[in-house]
Design a protein around this nucleic acid. Structure first.
Length: 369
RNA sequence: GUGGCCGUAGCUCAGUCUGGUAGAGCACCUGGUUGUGGUCCAGGAUGUCGCGGGUUCAAGUCCCGUCGGUCACC
C-alpha cells in the first residue's frame, strides 16, 4: 500500500482526468496547487483557500528548514496542524533554490548561504528527505538540480544525470511510508535528454513524477516539446506534475498533453503586483482605465472578490497599498486558475476538451473582451 | 523699516560661484516578473526657471527693478 495513488477517471485525447489519493484525502486532477513557501499562501489563509476550493498546497523545504526549522514543526505536530490545513500538502525539496540562489553544487549536495542570516547551509539528497519527513507533507520531492535556461548542453546533461543519482539516494533515505516521494525529470529543452531522464527516473518506480527545469525562460514550443518527450517514457498510471508552471495558456497546453498537477507563484505574485488573470485576458488593475469601472475583475468569475468588489475599488486599494488589495487580488487569481482546471476536468469528461481549449484561447486574446 | 536667505516639473529640491541642448528623487502613465524576498527592473509624459527690464551671439545663471515667502534685528 503506497501513500500516494492516482487513477484515471476519464480521458479526451492525451488529456486525462483522475483522482489523486493521499493520506489527507482525494484531489481531482488536473489540479493547480497554490504555493505557500513558508507555510502560508501569501495574503490568504486556509479558510480563504477552502472557499477558493483549493485541493492541495505546496510548501518549501528550504525556507521552512531555516525558519522555524523542521524539528520545530515536527514537535508542533507537523505542517498540516501547524498551518491549519487538513487537505494534502506537497513540499518542494529545495531543488529550485539550487537554481534561484546559485549555490555551490557538489556531488554530496548543495551549499547555500542562508537568505535569513548569511550562515552557510547545506542540503543533500538525504537531508532533503529527512527534513521533508519532519515537515510531514503528503507528497515530497527528490532533491534535483534545476538548471537555468539557456545553458550549455553539457551542463544540462551533467545535472540531469546528477539528478538521477540523487534520486536513488533519496529513495534509500526515505523512512516514512505514509508519504509519496516523487522523482523529478530534468534535461532542459532537449527532447533526447528528457526521454533519457524520464526513462531512467520511471525505472525507479516513484508514485509520481515531477517535470522540472521548465518555466524558466524557455519558449512555449520548447516547453511543450520537452513535456511530450518526457511523457513518452512515463507510466500512464502515475501522476505527472509540471513544476513551476502557472500561466493560463501554459497550463492548458500541459493538460492537453496529459499533465495532472501544477504549482506556481504567478497568481499570488501577480496579485501583489496588480496583475489580474481573467477569462478575457490579463489586466493590470493599476491602469487608469479602471478608475471609474464599476464592473468585477472578471464577469465570468464567482469568487469572493468578483462577487463583492468593483475594479474601481480594487484599483484604489491597490494604489494605496492597502493589505486588503493583496488578499482580494490573490483570491481572484487563485480562483481563476483553480476554476480553469475544474473546467478542464469537466471538458475532459464530456469529451469536448478540444472545444474548451479553442474557446479558452479565443476569449483570452487581447482585445477580445 | 533694515539686512540675510529662498522662489526651477504635481511635491521636495539640484543646477546660479565659473553664461552654452532644462535635471534628479518621489508622484503620475505604461510594460515585465513562472517549484516566491510584498521586491525589483525597463520605458514614457510633465516646465511662463516668480514677474519686468538690461548686458550678451547666447541668461535658470550676470546687472537693475519689482512681487511673494521666510528668518534675524529694530
Amino acid at each position: 500500500m503506497t501513500a500516494i495513488t492516482w487513477q484515471q477517471t476519464s480521458a479526451d485525447g492525451a488529456a486525462r482526468r483522475g483522482w489523486l489519493d493521499t493520506p489527507h484525502g482525494r484531489v481531482e486532477t488536473p489540479v493547480f496547487m497554490p504555493v505557500g513557501t513558508r507555510g502560508a499562501v501569501k495574503a490568504v489563509d486556509s479558510d480563504d483557500l477552502k472557499a477558493i476550493d483549493t485541493g492541495i498546497v505546496l510548501a518549501n523545504t528550504y525556507h521552512l528548514m531555516l525558519r522555524p526549522g523542521s524539528e520545530s514543526i515536527e514537535k508542533l505536530g507537523g505542517l498540516h496542524s501547524f498551518m491549519n490545513w487538513d487537505r494534502p500538502i506537497l513540499t518542494d525539496s529545495g531543488g529550485f533554490q539550487v537554481f534561484s540562489l546559485d549555490p555551490l553544487i557538489e556531488e554530496e549536495g548543495v551549499s547555500f548561504r542562508s537568505t535569513v542570516d548569511g550562515d552557510p547551509v547545506k542540503l543533500t539528497p538525504e537531508s532533503a528527505v529527512r527534513i521533508q519527513e519532519g515537515l510531514g507533507a503528503d507528497i515530497i520531492m527528490v532533491l534535483d538540480v534545476c538548471v537555468g535556461l539557456p545553458a550549455p548542453p553539457t551542463v544540462v546533461k551533467a545535472e540531469m544525470e546528477r539528478t538521477l543519482r540523487w534520486a536513488e539516494r533519496c529513495i534509500n533515505a526515505q523512512q516514512r511510508s505514509d508519504q509519496g516521494l516523487f522523482g523529478i525529470i530534468q534535461g532542459g529543452v532537449d527532447p533526447d535528454l528528457r526521454v533519457l531522464s524520464a526513462r531512467e527516473t520511471a525505472q525507479m518506480d516513484f508514485p509520481g513524477f515531477g517535470i522540472g527545469g521548465l518555466s524558466v525562460g524557455e519558449s512555449g514550443t520548447d516547453r511543450n516539446r520537452a513535456i511530450e518527450a518526457a511523457t513518452s517514457e512515463l507510466p500512464v498510471d502515475r501522476p505527472r506534475y509540471v513544476m513551476g508552471l502557472g500561466d493560463p495558456e501554459g497550463l492548458v497546453d500541459a493538460v492537453a498533453r496529459g499533465m495532472d498537477m501544477f504549482d506556481c507563484v504567478l497568481p499570488t505574485r501577480h496579485a501583489r503586483h496588480g496583475k489580474v488573470m481573467t477569462a478575457s485576458g490579463d489586466l493590470n488593475i493599476r491602469n487608469q482605465e479602471y478608475e471609474l469601472d464599476t464592473g468585477p475583475l472578471d464577469e465570468s468569475c464567482q469568487c469572493l472578490t468578483c462577487r463583492h468588489y468593483t475594479r474601481a475599488y480594487l484599483r484604489h486599494l491597490f494604489r494605496m497599498k492597502e493589505i486588503t488589495a493583496m488578499r482580494l487580488l490573490s483570491i481572484h487569481n487563485l480562483s481563476y486558475l483553480t476554476d480553469l482546471m475544474r473546467d478542464a476536468r469537466v471538458a475532459i469528461t464530456e469529451g469536448n476538451f478540444a472545444t474548451f481549449n479553442a474557446d479558452f484561447r479565443e476569449t483570452r486574446r487581447p482585445g477580445s473582451a
